[in-house]
């Protein structure tokens, strides 16, 4: 019946959509960049005009110079690589253990009642509080840093996964029972797809926290890494380097999150579609 007309409607609606969405996207980005660009230009002008000497607040051109210097000498890449490796190692460790323990406490009532209270208590310990302990236990090199990052990543992933399992729709589980799924099939065909969206959000939150914790980790005596660049810039009185490191952090974090989103997008196609239509 209306299937034909539906298709036609769809076809008619499709062509104008990309053009208007490109325009919308351009204006979207233009608006988003307007404020920072305006502020940067204003600051640049203020320093050039001599209203401010720009020593402690370096103008954008000096920050760019610092960036270029760091990039040319190869320092920047060493620091970025060091930070990235720490975050990835800590993220892998924290995400895997968080997912496993989260799944355990989501599935088993006994596991939840024994594990959850202690983990909730540990969760409220501030990240920096672990630093002295990890230094004593694991030494001053990579192990203590990776452990600290893993702790930061663990909790959001644990909470996300266990919460997702607890809130699985009992009605969908019943559909699985009606079709006589084995326990293994129940996990692969109902439970995993059902918890996937919440798990991916938890992973993104964990990655974000990983980038926060890596700074704390690199403050505790590192010889390379973007966090080290921050401390170094402070000690050498180079605010332009500090700002360059901060910008590098922002870019790195955004790129890693973007990669995670792109990698997981095919798994959530069924959700995206509904959202884009709303």
């Amino acid at each position: 019946m209306s299937e034909q007309s539906l298709k036609q409607e769809h076809d008619n609606a499709a062509p104008p959509a990309p053009r208007s969405s490109v325009m919308r996207r351009v204006s979207h980005y233009a608006l988003a960049f307007a404020l920072p660009v305006l502020l940067a230009l204003g600051w640049e002008y203020a320093v050039r005009a001599g209203w401010s000497n720009g020593r402690l607040m370096p103008p954008p051109s000096r920050i760019l110079d610092a960036f270029a210097d760091l990039a040319q000498s190869g320092e920047l890449w060493t620091h970025i690589l060091a930070t990235l490796m720490r975050v990835l190692a800590g993220f892998a460790l924290g995400a895997v253990s968080g997912a496993i323990i989260g799944a355990l406490s989501g599935v088993s009532d006994i596991a939840r009642r024994t594990l959850d209270p202690s983990l909730q208590a540990l969760r409220s310990v501030p990240s920096i509080a672990w630093v002295p302990l990890f230094l004593l236990w694991l030494g001053i090199f990579e192990a203590s840093k990776i452990a600290l990052i893993a702790v930061g990543v663990f909790f959001p992933v644990y909470l996300g996964v266990s919460g997702a399992i607890e809130s699985i729709d009992r009605k969908l589980v019943e559909v699985g029972r009606v079709f006589r799924l084995t326990p293994f099939q129940m996990v692969t065909r109902i439970l995993l797809p059902a918890i996937l969206p919440a798990t991916i959000i938890a992973l993104r939150a964990g990655l974000g926290l990983g980038f926060m914790f890596v700074v704390a980790a690199e403050f505790m005596g590192a010889s390379e890494g973007l966090g080290y660049l921050l401390v170094d810039g402070q000690q050498m009185g180079r605010p332009d380097r500090i700002l360059a490191a901060i910008i590098a952090f922002a870019a790195l974090g955004k790129i890693c999150d973007g990669i995670l989103v792109i990698l997981t997008r095919p798994l959530l196609r069924w959700q995206d579609l509904a959202r884009s239509k709303l």
């Binding site: 009605k171 559909v175 009606v178 079709f179 069924w270 959700q271």
Partner: peptide, 30 residues
């Protein structure tokens, strides 16, 4: 226990949102 000779339609459709319509229909034919 749930039996292959008995099919059930619930009050709500209870389709699995992550499967296409065709895969939902074929769910019991795995």
């Amino acid at each position: 226990a749930p039996h292959p000779a008995v099919g059930v339609v619930f009050q709500e459709p209870r389709l699995l949102p992550w499967l296409s319509v065709a895969d939902n229909i074929g769910f019991g034919l795995h």
